[in-house]
Design a binder for these strands. Structure first.
Lengths: 147, 147
DNA sequence: ATATGTGCAAATCCTTTGCATAGAA
DNA sequence: TTCTATGCAAAGGATTTGCACATAT
């Protein structure tokens, strides 16, 4: 576990800081990974592989789709990102790894963080014997008001 | 599956009752739909298209994969089932349409209802303006205890 | 008859994978 | 070197779709 370079972990990060962050997580700092890290880790956000790919394209950086998927999955495995398994259509990656919940617009798929202080999960559910919590996800799906 | 309780609409259903239920929801009562309804609506449970397909096969009923998907989606659209969009690998359909949350085993994918009385969501999240709640999903993912 | 539903196969879409090449230690 | 990462295209798996045939009212 790192915790060395960035207190909150989401300040605009220098190339050096990014490299240190990857290294601290046991991730080799390649050009492509640094590009993706710069896009994704600089501030809390929700991204899909497709989004990362298009942003890279907009910046003129050419990174293959396979590498984007590999990198996002690697970051998630090493704790730099959190995988959100709440959308059947696409895998979302969250650069905010703190415990928090989400609002999703069902029409656009867009995700928004839920204010951690506004909603709370109360009560200890009886877990199946021999199991432990791997993660908790709360999604409030919203749509445009009808009528 | 021990039916310790019997939520609304989950009594063992006769062919007549099933037909009436479909008709009441504006669904034409075809042979295939009745087969699937008998399997799925008779008691609260979580199923995937694949599960329904294999159960039908085990009973010697031949229903095409396309029809199983069409039927489950139709049932969900008409309110007989609830779609659970919490598993990136597969779409789960829940024949318990009452508000409740879930525990999922990350290894097997298996879903279990969370006792509605043990866990509660507290606090009103500020919804994006012009939106209304379409649904709320809470998933507690568990895994086999390590160590 | 006339509108609907079913089944098969092909098509889609997201994601992963195999393998040859390129880069880093 | 020697190990690891990248890129391309193909593979994979769940779900949808087009269309001809069958069914129901």
């Amino acid at each position: 576990m790192p915790a060395s370079s960035t207190p909150l972990g989401h300040e605009p990060l220098s190339q050096e800081a990014l490299r240190a962050r990857l290294t601290a997580h046991g991730i080799g700092a390649t050009a492509q990974r640094l590009e993706i890290a710069a896009l994704v880790l600089s501030e809390p956000q929700h991204v899909t592989a497709e989004i990362v790919l298009s942003r890279l394209g907009a910046l003129g950086r050419r990174v293959s789709k396979a590498t984007v998927y590999n990198t996002l999955n690697l970051f998630a495995a090493r704790g730099l990102l959190r995988t959100l398994a709440i959308d059947p259509d696409v895998t979302w990656f969250d650069s905010n790894t703190d415990a928090h919940f989400h609002i999703q617009h069902v029409d656009s798929g867009e995700l928004v963080d839920l204010d951690p202080h506004s909603v709370r999960l109360v009560g200890l559910p009886p877990l199946p014997p021999g199991t432990e919590v791997a993660g908790i996800e709360v999604v409030i799906r919203v749509r445009a008001q009808t009528g």
